[in-house]
């Protein structure tokens, strides 16, 4: 908590406390729809934060994070469907497998000096490779998908992630809160500074005794493991998994937009990003429907345009600008 507190000044702390309180109380007044939108926002805060650790702090551009979501989701769901192993236990092998993928990609990329766009392509290649692979793995339903059956009797088994909307709301809130806390802690840790050094200038970082390879490996391991937990949540929230849906590049892109728009390498950037983009998507659906443009794609066109405008106007993200304008961080004397 102290690390998080330290991010802000007095005014910022008040705003943060009020926001947390409001979100905790929101389900008592909000409609079911609003609660589901907020749940989705929390989910994107969580996975966005996981990606932010790797890109925002350690400077390693991954465009294949859907891989870890997919692996995490599929492993936990398959264990539950086929062996009745609950996600509270299944999350461990899920995280382990996703982190092994992360380790493999990291090792190949970092050992052989693959950087920047090339590294990003390596991550895409792995995600796409896995997507097509899953299309052909029959145990998990292949391209037809894997479904977690709805069982009335199991409702309320919260430890097996069988609950209603309200349960998932607080679960997602908890995950998001933990992710923010973890980021705040790591950002102020020794590792966090090593990451920044590697991000800014790898040769200079090594000249200061930092083992850049190890620092980057830690980044991808932590990030992939965290993302996999998001995948477990996703699987049990939506109850259906398709390779095309889980691993597609657009899923990777979707989860990195929040941190970039909100502000990379900041603790609250991914939070702001998710709170901006997810509702924007929802509003666009509403507006296009109200205008009578019922065609698929209308919403996404505006979404794409918005992205272009945001990155054109505030390339470093909304949070640095917002916090400065509102005076939420930094000392005021």
């Amino acid at each position: 908590m102290k690390a998080l507190w330290g991010e802000m000044n007095g005014r910022g702390r008040v705003v943060l406390a009020v926001a947390v309180l409001l979100l905790l109380l929101a389900p008592t007044v909000a409609t079911r729809y609003l609660v589901s939108v907020l749940t989705l926002i929390f989910y994107f805060v969580y996975v966005g934060q996981a990606w932010n650790l790797m890109m925002g702090y350690a400077g390693q551009l991954s465009l294949g994070h859907a891989l870890y979501v997919g692996v995490g989701g599929y492993v936990s769901a398959a264990l539950w469907v086929h062996f009745g192993i609950g996600p509270w236990l299944g999350v461990f092998p899920a995280v382990l497998l996703a982190a092994s993928f992360g380790a493999a990609i990291g090792w190949l990329g970092f050992r052989f000096g693959i950087e920047g766009v090339y590294f990003a392509l390596l991550t895409i290649a792995f995600a796409e490779f896995t997507r097509i692979g899953f299309d052909h793995i029959d145990v998990v339903g292949g391209a037809g998908g894997l479904f977690i059956p709805y069982e009335e009797a199991r409702l309320g088994e919260w430890w097996n992630l069988r609950g209603g909307q309200l349960f998932f709301y607080y679960l997602a809130f908890g995950l998001a809160a933990i992710a923010v806390l973890v980021t705040a802690l790591l950002a102020r840790s020794r590792l966090g500074y090593q990451w920044r050094a590697v991000r800014e200038d790898e040769a200079a970082a090594r000249a200061l005794g930092i083992d850049a390879f190890r620092a980057k490996m830690k980044a991808i391991l932590i990030s992939s493991a965290m993302t996999a937990v998001g995948g477990v949540f996703y699987a049990f929230y939506y109850n259906s998994l398709f390779p095309a849906q889980m691993f597609e590049m657009s899923r990777s892109i979707e989860l990195i937009l929040g941190p970039i728009v909100g502000g990379l390498g900041t603790v609250f950037g991914p939070v702001i990003g998710a709170f901006l983009l997810t509702p924007l998507g929802e509003i666009l659906i509403g507006v296009t429907e109200a205008l009578g443009i019922n065609a698929p794609g209308a919403k996404a066109v505006f979404f794409g345009l918005t992205l272009m405008v945001i990155i054109y106007l505030v390339p470093t993200g909304v949070w640095p600008w917002l916090s400065k304008t509102l005076g939420l961080t930094g000392r005021r004397s």
């Binding site: 794609g297 209308a298 996404a300 794409g304 992205l307 272009m308």
Partner: peptide
């Protein structure tokens, strides 16, 4: 500018194109 900024700009454009065609 950094890779990821170019990336967002062009991905935005890609989304606009694909969905424009869809429309």
């Amino acid at each position: 500018r950094p890779d990821h900024e170019q990336f967002i700009l062009l991905v935005g454009l890609a989304i606009v194109i694909t969905n424009g065609l869809l429309l």
